[in-house]
């Protein structure tokens, strides 16, 4: 079964590399933010798969924390670009 998890992990890393193209070269800031959000959500699943490869269940806790942080980061970046400020004065 560990071969399956290795293959899935490699496929996720491959898709992250594909998304990295948009993150670096994507025309405009919005393409870059969308790519960073996509990479963050892919990393959540990658952490779960890594936890199964190394047989350490605590990676799932890390991925829960990472999911929350990634969500908040995306919302903050979108809000900053929308209003030009983070909180109303």
């Amino acid at each position: 079964m560990i071969e399956t998890f290795l293959a899935i992990g490699l496929i996720i890393v491959f898709t992250i590399l594909l998304s990295l193209y948009r993150l670096v070269l994507g025309p405009g800031i919005f393409n870059q933010i969308a790519a960073s959000n996509v990479i963050g959500t892919k990393v959540i699943v990658l952490l779960v798969v890594i936890g199964y490869i190394f047989e350490r269940p605590m990676f799932i806790d890390i991925s829960l924390l990472y999911a929350a942080l990634n969500f908040i980061a995306t919302l903050l970046m979108a809000r900053y670009l929308e209003r030009g400020e983070l909180c109303k004065a």
């Binding site: 919005f30 969308a34 959000n37 959540i44 779960v48 929350a68 969500f71 919302l75 979108a78 809000r79």
Partner: peptide, 19 residues
């Protein structure tokens, strides 16, 4: 984790698109 992804992913997409 699954429920969080189901709720958070559309909200993030919508936030970037609205911006």
């Amino acid at each position: 984790l699954m429920l969080f992804i189901f709720i958070a992913n559309p909200v993030g997409t919508h936030a970037i698109m609205k911006a």
